[in-house]
């Protein structure tokens, strides 16, 4: 009987591990043993697959893999830097043609990126630079774009009053960039009081944080949240308090549901990095490197667009911001999120 129990237990644990891995595989035709044919193999390590941004990245990336005839193996670090490093080591051992990674902690990855370099495998750190000569870094201008959002918000509230920011969590690269940009913008406005709360990338946490901030600060003028999925939930708090006209809500990511909210006027703006686009574009860069090409610049910028209505666009243009930004309408953004017209095949 005891034996049976232990066998059953092992089976359950194994099954649960399999379930955990389920989301990480790529296209339907992908195998896990590279080098069986001439297809180039890219290994991609994301931060975690419970976040919509990364789920969409996989979709866009798989599309690029199909377009370019390469194989992509997706892995999730589950937000854990140790796991991320060991996934890197696995890819090096497997001898993939290029490794792309969303660094959880840039400094901690230096060693293993050097290892990859010594093994002759090109690496791309997505959204965060790791200071190793052979490494390429793809960026979506999160810091700069968020700073511009901060300027727009500050202008719209007249340079004074209370502004709230919901960031992801400290130590998460994407969150830190998007928080830092906003903070830098607000630092230029001494009469603006910035109230910050983490939302841990969880819509429910974001909703509660927004409710509490609005209740504690009846005179709140604006709310910026660094990720669309959470902003849409946080907006419920604004609506519930009946303050749609008083509180400006702005967001980031440009996912289609948020673009609809921009069109309906619930959100003032979002920024289309486009998670699917980011996935597509990163795979494209990875393919280039896997094929032996070496771009001149080690930091490669992805095209990003501000998403807002024409009316809002006019308001922003009247501000004469010292920034050269591309502004598109919500419908255009929705179309662009699924098409990869920004990235001509190379």
């Amino acid at each position: 009987m005891k034996k049976f129990v232990s066998i059953a237990l092992v089976l359950i644990l194994a099954l649960s591990l399999l379930a955990g891995c389920g989301g990480e595989t790529g296209g339907p035709d992908e195998g896990t043993t590279p080098d069986t044919d001439a297809k180039k193999v890219l290994g991609i390590i994301l931060i975690d697959l419970t976040n919509q941004f990364f789920v969409d990245m996989v979709e866009g990336g798989n599309q690029a893999a199909e377009d370019y005839g390469v194989e992509v193996i997706w892995k999730s670090s589950d937000g854990n830097i140790d796991k991320q490093i060991s996934l890197m080591e696995n890819f090096i051992e497997q001898g993939v043609d290029c490794i792309l990674v969303n660094p959880i902690d840039s400094a901690a990855l230096e060693g293993v990126i050097r290892q990859a370099s010594e093994a002759g495998i090109p690496t791309v750190t997505m959204a965060g630079n790791v200071d190793v000569d052979s490494n390429y870094c793809t960026v979506y201008n999160d810091y700069e774009n968020t700073k511009i959002i901060g300027d727009i918000v500050a202008n719209m509230v007249g340079g004074e009053g209370k502004v709230a920011l919901l960031y992801g969590n400290k130590g998460n690269l994407v969150s830190d960039l998007r928080q830092g940009g906003f903070q830098e913008a607000m630092a230029a406005y001494p009469d603006i009081e910035l109230i910050e709360q983490p939302m841990n990338w969880d819509p429910a946490t974001g909703l509660k944080a927004a409710q509490d901030i609005i209740a504690a600060n009846p005179d709140l003028k604006a709310l910026h949240c660094v990720s669309d999925a959470v902003t849409l939930a946080a907006y419920q708090a604004v609506k519930d308090a009946g303050k749609e006209d008083q509180i400006l809500v702005t967001s980031f990511d440009g996912n289609p549901d948020a673009c609809i909210a921009v069109e309906e006027g619930q959100l003032k703006l979002s920024v289309l990095t486009g998670s699917k686009r980011a996935g597509y574009w990163n795979v494209q860069v990875g393919v280039q490197l896997a094929n032996g090409e070496r771009p001149d610049d080690q930091i490669i910028n992805m095209a990003t667009h501000f998403v807002m209505t024409d009316e809002m666009k006019a308001t922003v243009e009247a501000m004469n911001l010292d920034a050269d930004i591309s502004i598109i309408g919500p419908q255009e953004a929705i179309a662009m999120a699924d098409l990869y017209t920004d990235f001509e095949p190379k």
Binding site: S16, L17, A19, G23, L49, T50, V55
Partner: peptide, 15 residues
Amino acid sequence: SLLQGMSMLIGNGNM
């Protein structure tokens, strides 16, 4: 752990 995996598999984890 099983449920964690399933939550990401259902509807491909799309919001």
